[in-house]
C-alpha cells in the first residue's frame, strides 16, 4: 500500500508518501499560479524522490486551501481533520494543536484516537497568521528564516502594543527610528504573535499536551513565546511542522485502505508516548 497526502496551501504545496512502515518521502514547493498545477508538481517531485510513479499510489488525499482543485485526489479531507491526525500520530498524548500557517491560524482539540472534537479558526484578520511575521521581517529587513536567531541576541523586553498588522508595522518602524535594537523588537513581535495564538487556543479550552504546527512553528522564537504564554512546555513531535497537513492526509488515506501506520517514535506498546525530539 502507498498512501499520499497532498496539502495545497495559499503559499506552499506539500506532498508526502507513506507505506505500512512509515514515511517514504516528502516535498514542499512554493505555490505560484494555479493550485492544480502546484499539486501536480509537488506530487511528481515527491514520487520521483521515492522512485515511484502516480499509478503506484493506492490512495491520495487532498487537503488545504486548494484541496477542491486537486482533481487527481481519491478523496478530500478538511485541513482541520488532517492537521489533527498528523499531529496526534507523532505523539498520542497530544490533545491540543495550535497551527499557524501563512494566511490562517487554528487551534484544534483531538481525542485519544486523533479525532477532532473542537476547533477554532482565524483567517479573517492577518494578525496572528504567518503574514504578520512576513510583513515585520520585511519592515525590519531581516530574512524571515533569520528572525528566530536574531531574537537570541535580545537583551531587553520590548512590548508591541498594536495587534493589527498595519498598526504594528508603523509601531515597529517607530521603534527602529527610536534606536531600539532589532533583536529586542523581534522578540517582542514573537511574544505578541504567541499571545494571540494562545488566546485563540484558550477560546476552545486547552487540554494538555499541546503541540505547535504549521509553517510558523519552525520559528523557535514564536515557540518560546507560546510556551511562556501557556506556561507549559510543548510537544515536539520531531516531524516537520509544515508537513503536518500532508502527513495527516496520507495517514487518513492509509486508514481508508485499512492500514494503521505505526508512528516512528513508539518503541514498545507500553511506552505509548515515547517520542523523538529535542
Amino acid at each position: 500500500m502507498i498512501s499520499a497526502g497532498c496539502d495545497v496551501g495559499s503559499l506552499t504545496a506539500k506532498g508526502l508518501l507513506l507505506n505500512e512502515s512509515g514515511i517514504l518521502a516528502s516535498e514542499v514547493i512554493p505555490v505560484s499560479g494555479r493550485p492544480t498545477r502546484a499539486a501536480l508538481e509537488v506530487m511528481n517531485l515527491v514520487l520521483k524522490s521515492a522512485g515511484l510513479s502516480m499509478k503506484d499510489v493506492t490512495h491520495l488525499v487532498g487537503t488545504g486551501y486548494g484541496r477542491k482543485r486537486i482533481d487527481f485526489a481519491h478523496s478530500i479531507e478538511s485541513e482541520i481533520t488532517c492537521h489533527g491526525m498528523g499531529a496526534w500520530w507523532g505523539d498520542h498524548s497530544i490533545r491540543t494543536i495550535i497551527d499557524i500557517g501563512g494566511q490562517d491560524a487554528k487551534a484544534i482539540r483531538v481525542n485519544h484516537e486523533g479525532e477532532v472534537t473542537r476547533y477554532v479558526y482565524n483567517d479573517k484578520c492577518a494578525s496572528g497568521t504567518g503574514r504578520f511575521l512576513e510583513i515585520m521581517a520585511e519592515a525590519l529587513e531581516v530574512p524571515l528564516d533569520g528572525m528566530a536567531s536574531e531574537e537570541e541576541k535580545s537583551t531587553r523586553d520590548v512590548h508591541i502594543s498594536s495587534q493589527c498588522v498595519i498598526f504594528a508595522e508603523s509601531e515597529v518602524i517607530s521603534l527602529v527610528n527610536e534606536g531600539v535594537p532589532v533583536p529586542d523588537i523581534i522578540k517582542g513581535l514573537h511574544g505578541a504573535m504567541a499571545a494571540r495564538a494562545a488566546a485563540l487556543a484558550r477560546s476552545i479550552g486547552i487540554e494538555e499536551r499541546i503541540t505547535f504546527s504549521g509553517g510558523v512553528a519552525r520559528n523557535g522564537g514564536v515557540l518560546r513565546g507560546l510556551e511562556e504564554s501557556l506556561g507549559t512546555s510543548l510537544v515536539r513531535t520531531g516531524s516537520d511542522p509544515q508537513l503536518n497537513g500532508a502527513l495527516g492526509g496520507a495517514l487518513i488515506g492509509a486508514r481508508k485502505c485499512g492500514v494503521h501506520v505505526k508512528p516512528p517514535g513508539i518503541m514498545e506498546e507500553e511506552h505509548g508516548t515515547v517520542q523523538a525530539g529535542h
Binding site: Q103, K124, C125, A126, R131, I135, C164, V165, I166
Partner: peptide, 16 residues
C-alpha cells in the same frame, strides 16, 4: 461616482 460595477471585497482586513 464613475462606475456602476464596484468590485466586492470579501475581506475586511487591510492586509488581505
Amino acid at each position: 461616482a464613475g462606475t456602476m460595477s464596484p468590485i466586492t471585497f470579501a475581506s475586511t482586513c487591510t492586509v488581505w
